[in-house]
Simulated assay, not measured.
Amino acid sequence: MEYIPILAERERIAEDILTNKQLMDKDNVKTYIEKDQESLESGISSLRETVKEKMAELEKLETGDDKISKGFKLRGMSSNELYNITKE
C-alpha cells in the first residue's frame, strides 16, 4: 500500500514541472529582459545627463565663467559604435 502515495507524489511533482515549463516561455522571458535592459539603459543615460548638467553648473559657480569645459560634453560610445571601430 505504500506504492500509491509514491505514485501520487510523483504525479504531483510531474505536474509542477509541466506547469513551470509553461509559465517560463523563453520568448516571453527574453522580451521581458530586453524591456528591462532598455529601461535601465534609459535611466542610466538620464542620470549621466543630469550629472553633466550639475557638474557644468558647479564649474560655473566655481569659476564664474559660462564657458563649459570640453570634457563635460563627452559621451560614451555605444556598443554598436565600438563594434564598428574594432571590426576592421
Rank of each mutant, 00 (worst) to 15 (best):
K26V: 13
K30L: 06
M1P: 01
E41M: 09
D66K: 10
R75P: 01
M55F: 08
Y3M: 14
E49Q: 15
D16I: 14
V29C: 01
S46T: 12
E34A: 13
N84D: 14
D25I: 00
K30G: 01
I13M: 05
P5A: 03
I68F: 00
I33M: 04
S45F: 06
L23W: 09
E9K: 10
D27R: 06
G76F: 13
K87P: 01
R10F: 11
E81S: 13
E53G: 10
E62Q: 13
M77S: 12
M1A: 02
L40R: 09
G43Q: 07
D65Q: 10
R12H: 08
E34Y: 07
R48V: 14
A14G: 04
L47P: 02
E11W: 01
E53K: 13
I13Y: 04
T50W: 04
G71E: 10
D16R: 15
K87Y: 02
N28P: 00
N80P: 06
T19G: 02
S42L: 05
D27V: 10
D16N: 15
L47V: 13
N84C: 08
K30C: 03
G64Y: 03
M24K: 10
R48F: 09
F72V: 10
I44T: 11
E34K: 11
E88D: 08
E57R: 09
D66H: 06
K73T: 13
K26I: 11
N28K: 10
K35A: 09
L61E: 11
E57F: 12
R48T: 12
Y3I: 15
E34P: 00
L58G: 11
E15C: 06
S46P: 00
Y3W: 15
K21H: 04
S42F: 08
E15A: 15
E9A: 12
G71T: 04
G43T: 08
V51E: 07
L74F: 15
M1W: 00
D65Y: 05
V51C: 06
K54T: 08
I85T: 09
I13N: 02
L61S: 13
G43E: 05
V51N: 07
F72Y: 15
S69Y: 03
Q37E: 10
E57W: 11
K73L: 10
E9M: 08
T86I: 13
D36C: 07
R10S: 08
V51S: 07
L74R: 15
R75C: 00
Q22G: 00
